[in-house]
Amino acid sequence: MQIDIIKRDLLLATRSKGDWVMGVIFFAVFLALAVIALGNDSALLRQIAPAIVWLAFLMSALLSFGQIFTQDYEDGTLAQILIFQQSPLKIVSAKFIAYIITALMPLWFAIPLAGLMFNLTIDVIAGLMLSVLIGLPAIAAYGIFASALTVVKGASGVLIVLICAPFLMPVLIFGISAVDIYTVEGLWSAPYKALFGLSLIACATALPAASASIKTGFE
């Protein structure tokens, strides 16, 4: 049943007249503005590029968190699926995968673009893409959690940012330090392992929490 939901979400994304591009556009605009704001010092830009790209990625992801369950909840689909298959964890895990494919992967593929803007070396771009990829499950899991928590209670999107920010902070810290260390120690350095651990913890805690909040939200 997860595969049915994922297939439907992918089909909906292709029919959405490019809603998924919005995140990529925001990502690109954020980076362009950052480059303009920080001036012409290319040595400085190269130095802080990993932090800026990570921030841009998180901000773009935060923007899309609110949409994960909203439509399905408001048109009654979520209730229907729950009635057919009373296992919210299956729904949550399906939405998790679908969200990564439709919202986060387009952003991830846009990272080399940032490399062009900041004039980064291939090594740094590779380190950046790997660190984001390893942190991606954590970002998606906390996004799903915040979205599930707020949607059934009709809470505002601002709450999502407040809920996610503390959880995403360690991901950001280890993500950025992973890029810095990639050129020296490669993929098997401590920050990458920490990032991987954070992703595992996020999947093991945030996904069950999201399914519990959906279940109780209807009661």
């Binding site: 049943m1 049915d4 057919f84």
Partner: peptide, 23 residues
């Protein structure tokens, strides 16, 4: 329910196929 739980971006056939797969 009083909500139809249909997706406006899908055709009637695609929408019902999704529910057919699901159940």
């Amino acid at each position: 329910g009083h909500q139809d739980a249909l997706k406006p971006q899908l055709t009637a056939f695609e929408d019902l196929s999704f529910w057919a797969d699901l159940c």
